[in-house]
Design a protein around this nucleic acid. Sequence first.
DNA 1: AATTTACTGATAGTATAGCTATCATTCTTG
DNA 2: CAAGAATGATAGCTATACTATCAGTAAATT
Lengths: 235, 235
Amino acid sequence: MEYTVHVRMNEHLFLRDPDGSELGRKIVREGITLFGEIGLEETTFRKLADRMGTKEASIYRYFENKHRLLVYLVAWYWQWLEYQVVFQTNNLQSPHEKLDRILRLLIMDGVNVTAGNGADGVDLTTLHSLVIREASKAYLTRHVTEDNRQQLFKPYKDLCARIANIILEQQPTYPFARSLASTLIETAHYQAFFRQNLPSLTDFGTAKDETQLLEFLRHLLFSSLEKPVHPVKVV
Amino acid sequence: MEYTVHVRMNEHLFLRDPDGSELGRKIVREGITLFGEIGLEETTFRKLADRMGTKEASIYRYFENKHRLLVYLVAWYWQWLEYQVVFQTNNLQSPHEKLDRILRLLIMDGVNVTAGNGADGVDLTTLHSLVIREASKAYLTRHVTEDNRQQLFKPYKDLCARIANIILEQQPTYPFARSLASTLIETAHYQAFFRQNLPSLTDFGTAKDETQLLEFLRHLLFSSLEKPVHPVKVV
DNA sequence: AATTTACTGATAGTATAGCTATCATTCTTG
DNA sequence: CAAGAATGATAGCTATACTATCAGTAAATT
């Protein structure tokens, strides 16, 4: 069966909708590979334009600057991931099983990266490694608050809220569902980064895949949900 | 009692030791406040020099570039924090109590920021909020591997290893001590960031202090250490 | 078929960032 | 007091991060 998942993006994420033209889609596709290859800091719109055979000015018509392009790509990733969560947990009875699926999604296990998953020919593998390295730079800025006001992080918050709800299905009395959700997302990412780049910060140095990371995330999550929470002390 | 904690830094972190001159110490002090005020991206050596009443070129004699200055400040913070861990857990019997102290240190609870803790007149409060927002940018780069080879992240790894060892004191069979240690450090930071800037990613939105964050970290840590780990499946 | 309109290409230009070099001056230290 | 080290002052160079203008072209409208 052929199908395409189309991700509809918030209007504040761009100046002109990159999804509405061939050039725009190319900016997104090539943006992913360039960010993936040389990283946010080294990337410039000039380099991107040269590689695409277009001009700097043309890219500026779509995105205010490279930070906004990054935010766009990261937002796209969160929306794609939330769709995957919905799709893959659909019809599952047990919240425990749902959570297990989610953890596997977070490390991109069980994702068919070659299929129609990546709409518009997006390279999901590269996007994932880009997100691991660059996603937090999207919000770790002085202008988070303004960006947040423009809903730029809504996809991240939506994903987090969805995971939090499933956590509450599993354990309705757990009081830190959202923090635990965001912790799992972030932990999945930087532990993967550490494993590859600063392995002594992890216990997965010698591992060749993410199996042990998955075990760690599982243990972290389910031990939290099983242990009763002491009443919060009033200070 | 008057005393000063002196933090000795790795030589690769600078071109000329900033601790060896008044100008150098001023670069560090004012660097902290400038990074704290306007963030990494907006900071330039020109602005820093202007604010200090010195010249751009003079700063370049101490630090290769602003990224290296950031790495230096962050490394300083990790070393300072490790010292605090050693100091505050010294003579404590129970590893449980040690871990509790560590968690409080991670959120800067129980630190006397006005005393001699901040060597060289370093503003610890500003440094802490700077670390929360910028520390991960120190390693989230294309050149992590080279930087790592030069031992730039050793202070972070040392702190992480120290915490991991105390985790193992508490629970010798726990197999993810280092990952849990780095997760606690990172989580303490970005949950604090989220609480202030993207509160819907946390459960502490309305809280006026870090008490609930501390509860979350405690629960995360101790539930992990209490729950037995299933044998890791061979795939 | 003619004509708006929408987009892209091509070129130019400005301000600032990021860095390097030089040399005079001051400040140490033997 | 001489030698060496650190800083100040100035200059300059290349790259980045944009903005502006206008011509060409393709698509949509009448």
